[in-house]
Design a protein around this nucleic acid. Sequence first.
DNA 1: GTGGTCTAGACCACC
DNA 2: GTGGTCTAGACCACA
Lengths: 127, 127, 127, 127
Amino acid sequence: MKFHNKEAIYLQIVEMVCEKILTRQWGAGEKIPSVRELAVSIEVNPNTVLRAYGFLQEKEIVQIKRGVGYFVSKGAFGATLAFMKTKFLENDLPLFFRSIRLLGIDFDDLQARFELLEESDERNENK
Amino acid sequence: MKFHNKEAIYLQIVEMVCEKILTRQWGAGEKIPSVRELAVSIEVNPNTVLRAYGFLQEKEIVQIKRGVGYFVSKGAFGATLAFMKTKFLENDLPLFFRSIRLLGIDFDDLQARFELLEESDERNENK
Amino acid sequence: MKFHNKEAIYLQIVEMVCEKILTRQWGAGEKIPSVRELAVSIEVNPNTVLRAYGFLQEKEIVQIKRGVGYFVSKGAFGATLAFMKTKFLENDLPLFFRSIRLLGIDFDDLQARFELLEESDERNENK
Amino acid sequence: MKFHNKEAIYLQIVEMVCEKILTRQWGAGEKIPSVRELAVSIEVNPNTVLRAYGFLQEKEIVQIKRGVGYFVSKGAFGATLAFMKTKFLENDLPLFFRSIRLLGIDFDDLQARFELLEESDERNENK
DNA sequence: GTGGTCTAGACCACC
DNA sequence: GTGGTCTAGACCACA
């Protein structure tokens, strides 16, 4: 897995897990990779994975069963959606709007880019 | 001046300067506050201001006249726009689109919010 | 390590690193000394080393793995060569030529000196 | 006059004067521009010119007649040549050779560049 | 007065 | 352990 430097790696792992849940790749009650497994597969220090899992546990998105592993918790989908939506609306959106206005970016242009992206992804899915 | 903790102060100073330039408050060739002056006025260590100015100098947004001070460089508006636009398109926008899709947010809804914001600002300007 | 006063220490550190890379003492992907390590070994403040490393990172000669340290980046040899060659051709060479002409120095004479130097170094290597 | 940022302005003025002398544009005993005159013509603070003249006076390249102005001193040509040659051979040349070897630059290539430069200048002179 | 460099040391987030 | 930021303050060269 590739990480960018603008955000802590553990938060990028958190995002990855959230994405799995929101896209229904990981369903409620399902076991997720063990700390060590994931650490090896994404080439990261186990401590870093642990921190991500701990963070997710706090948000009640995953839960731990001692000696067994981490599992997607029951209300995970809702909790994830709520958590990310709040983050988005409160933090990202205002900054985003500010940038758009400062840079004089046309909203319609963005929409066009967005739709272009959607189409290209649909093509990829059909492959 | 108030700073948030999510970004280094010197980068927030960079942003402040860019904003001044993009909003035409500071024009090409104009002298900007000396390192010490600005440091005092925003209650920050001179080193921190210096770092911001150095960063801007590298981006050719600002230039120095030895022993005199820093000045907005000739192509500053363009350079600033280019710098910030690149940052926006490469860093912010992809993350933004990813969030929208993941959260199932409707683009039209965003546009409505955005236009609402613009209107309310117009009202403020007319005050 | 001994530093001269004609150039900032952090730039002398930059040069030192570049030399290590150009002479293949430090290869791509190799870890370079941590900021604190190097600071201790050359008896300089860690901030000064950090500044040099930051400079090199910008030139893509060196890259950081978070929490692990700095590493010689993949294209380091090429990037270093390009960076130093540009610096040489744009800054040093014009001044050099100007001096030669002004002082009426014979180019062939320089070449002789240079070859002499090369020979004496070859003898040193063979020791 | 245009200055670069790599060297103090007053030293660039020194170089300019030396060039005038070495190219016989300014002969021994000749009056050189007053501090104020030169300062205005090259758009520089008078203090800066003064510093350059002071430096040249120390090297016995110019001399001051109180209340009259600065003059090229008798042995100026020789003094200038000696001063600059020493500087060149002791400071510049060793660094220059080191760069060439480190960067693997071919000496013959440099010679070609140099001759190219000479030719283009001859053309300019004939204009 | 201007900027620039360096030190010493604290504190932080992250791996 | 790693790097990164910031402060406080000294000292310097330069205009």
